[in-house]
Design a protein around this nucleic acid. Structure first.
Length: 358
DNA sequence: GATCCGTGGAG
DNA sequence: TCTCCAAGGAT
């Protein structure tokens, strides 16, 4: 084992984070083994998502679906509803698919190799390596955003991302130890998350400070360099909240692909790049006394959406592809944040725990 | 390789 | 207010 791994594992033994899905070094010493299902579920949820945001979702999923077979047998709409708010909904669709493949073709167990894991839906290079290392003690090179940051600073790699990825992968492979590869991978990520942070890294506390070329030269915070991001365009649309006297609103389900795929929505216009500000009630799902309720803005990854909100009292008329859902039952719907925002704009207490019965 | 895909918190 | 970003994957 080289000196990087030795120092890092010693630091990890003393300063690792306690996380709900993690088996720490002391627990491992007592014979506790990581559950591949827990490792997988946490890794999928953590993709581009903060630890704090994941925690309640991880608990909720494990409570409702304690084993892979439970998730495989679950209703897809319930899984999407449970995932609602966490974002990147293709993850939830692939999570369900993956559980079904495991139940059908793998006896409900996870493959224990990188290649076997990589072949599953929603599992790419990072996640395959992470599960192989953390759940099965395979010495795979685990490279996530944390590792990219640590390695570019450690070796003062001036090539901007993503061009530097191959070099980072090579460096990480060379550093990964044959012993405790799972702890090592988590140690690298903990180091990146708590010490080698994007801004104001705590270099004085870093177990690798004597080896860090960026620190010896100048300013580690400068790295990694990144390619400039494209500007975020603005798109406009309108959303329609139709409410019946017995407190139901009209919902639909989006098609199973693309933006918010498989999630619930209120009827909306298309979301165009136009800026005419006229997008409005002539596109309503049916003719009614539509009342303007202002506008909500929501920021997606690659565009900003401004939705004009319309509200109308309505009778419960049949609408193709639509369903009239009790407002008190909205918590069971797979509503993404932008839709909760739109509904709340029209009906302020829609998601309150106790609604006043008017 | 470039683009698409959410959300909410921190600075 | 605004920018950045957090354990990436699919196409």
């Amino acid at each position: 084992m080289d000196h990087f791994a030795r120092k890092l594992l010693a630091w990890y033994d003393r300063h690792h984070r306690e996380l709900p899905w993690r088996v720490g070094p002391s627990d491992k010493a007592q014979g506790v083994v990581p559950d591949p299902y827990h490792v997988w579920l946490s890794e999928i949820m953590l993709q581009q998502t903060t630890v704090q945001a994941v925690k309640p979702y991880f608990d909720k999923f494990l409570t409702r679906w304690p084993r892979v077979a439970d998730l495989a047998a679950a209703d897809t709409d319930e899984v999407m509803a449970a995932w609602a708010g966490l974002g990147y909904y293709a993850r939830a669709r692939n999570l369900k698919k993956c559980a079904e493949v495991l139940a059908r073709d793998h006896d409900g167990r996870f493959p224990d190799t990188f290649e076997g894991l990589k072949a599953l839906p929603g599992i790419g290079d990072y996640t395959a390596a992470a599960i192989a290392a953390i759940a099965f003690d395979r010495p795979e090179a685990v490279v996530d955003g944390n590792v990219e940051r640590v390695v570019t600073r450690l070796f003062a790699i001036e090539t901007p991302l993503p061009t530097a990825k191959p070099e980072i992968k090579t460096r990480t492979k060379a550093m990964t130890p044959a012993e405790r590869p799972g702890d090592y991978a988590q140690a690298m990520m903990d180091l990146g998350a708590t010490i080698c942070t994007p801004k104001r890294p705590a270099c004085v506390l870093c177990p690798l400070r004597d080896d860090c070329i960026a620190l010896s030269k100048d300013d580690p915070q400068r790295l990694p360099l990144k390619m400039p991001k494209a500007a975020r365009p603005v798109r406009y649309g309108a959303a329609f909240i139709a409410e019946t006297p017995d407190q139901r609103i009209l919902l639909k389900t989006r098609e199973n692909k693309g933006l918010l795929g498989g999630m619930a929505e209120v009827p909306t216009t298309g979301w165009t790049a136009r800026s005419d500000g006229e997008t409005g009630k002539d596109a309503a799902p049916f003719s009614a006394a539509w009342t303007p309720k202002g506008e909500v803005t929501h920021v997606f990854t690659h565009f900003e959406l401004r939705l004009a909100i319309w509200h109308a009292a309505s009778d419960e008329r049949p609408v193709t592809g639509g369903r009239w859902t009790q407002i008190t039952a909205l918590g069971e719907e797979a509503l993404p944040s932008v839709m909760k925002k739109a509904i709340t704009q029209a009906i302020p207490d829609a998601f309150k725990a106790r609604r006043e019965t008017s």
